[in-house]
Deep mutational scan, measured.
Amino acid sequence: TLFEALYDYEARTEDDLSFHKGEKFQILNSSEGDWWEVRSLTTGETGYIPSPYLAPV
């Protein structure tokens, strides 16, 4: 399942991933609570992002 960003987000740590509203992601790991490890389909980068900022496509 692909997810889309509902809002912009600016990374706060080196493990976070900055992204823009509308960017699409592949979920790599969603078992860590509200922070999911994802791969951006736009940039190819991986990192953690807050799951409340995402919605299924």
Rank of each mutant, 00 (worst) to 15 (best):
V57A: 08
P56W: 04
D8F: 03
R12P: 10
L28N: 01
A5L: 09
R39Q: 08
P50Q: 11
R39K: 12
E32D: 15
Y53P: 04
Y9D: 01
S31K: 10
L41E: 07
T13K: 14
S31R: 09
W35N: 07
S40F: 03
W35C: 11
W36T: 04
T42P: 01
W35M: 12
T43K: 03
E37R: 10
E14Y: 10
E45V: 10
E45Y: 09
D15N: 14
A55R: 10
D34M: 13
S30W: 12
Y7A: 10
K24G: 03
S51P: 13
A5I: 03
E23W: 06
E4I: 14
E10F: 10
P50R: 11
S51C: 12
Q26D: 07
D15Y: 15
T46V: 14
I27W: 06
G47A: 03
R12N: 11
T13L: 10
S18F: 04
A5S: 06
A55Y: 09
E23A: 05
P56G: 06
A5N: 01
L28T: 04
G44C: 10
S40D: 02
T42V: 11
D8H: 06
E14W: 09
E37C: 13
G44E: 04
S18N: 06
Y48R: 14
V57T: 08
W35E: 05
Y53S: 11
I49S: 02
L6I: 11
S40N: 14
I49P: 00
L17V: 07
L6D: 03
L54A: 04
W36G: 00
Y48M: 12
P52S: 15
Y53V: 09
F3A: 06
H20L: 11
V38I: 02
G47P: 00
Y53A: 15
W36E: 01
L2K: 04
V57Q: 06
Y7R: 09
D34E: 12
W35H: 08
L41R: 02
S40G: 02
T46I: 14
G33N: 12
L6H: 04
Y9G: 03
R12I: 12
D16I: 12
Y48D: 01
E45L: 14
A55M: 09
K21T: 07
S40K: 13
D34Q: 10
S30R: 11
D16K: 14
D34P: 09
F3E: 01
E23V: 02
Q26P: 01
Q26F: 12
L17P: 04
I27L: 11
K21H: 05
L28W: 02
V57E: 08
L17T: 04
S51N: 10
K24T: 09
T13M: 12
T42H: 11
S30D: 13
T43A: 01
I49Q: 00
F19S: 02
E45D: 09
L28M: 08
L28Y: 02
P52W: 15
N29I: 05
E45C: 13
I27P: 02
E23G: 01
L17N: 02
L54K: 03
E4A: 07
W36I: 07
F19E: 00
I49T: 03
K24W: 13
E10H: 11
T1S: 11
E32G: 14
K24H: 10
F3I: 03
G44A: 04
F3W: 15
F25Q: 00
E14C: 13
P52V: 15
L41T: 07
E14G: 13
T43G: 02
T1N: 11
T46E: 08
E37T: 07
Y53C: 15
E10M: 11
R39D: 00
E37M: 14
Y53K: 08
D16E: 15
R39N: 02
E45H: 11
D16R: 14
A55C: 07
L54M: 07
T1C: 15
D34A: 10
P56H: 06
G47V: 03
K24M: 13
S40Q: 05
E10G: 05
L2N: 04
P52H: 15
S51G: 11
S31E: 11
T42F: 09
Q26L: 14
T1Q: 14
E45K: 15
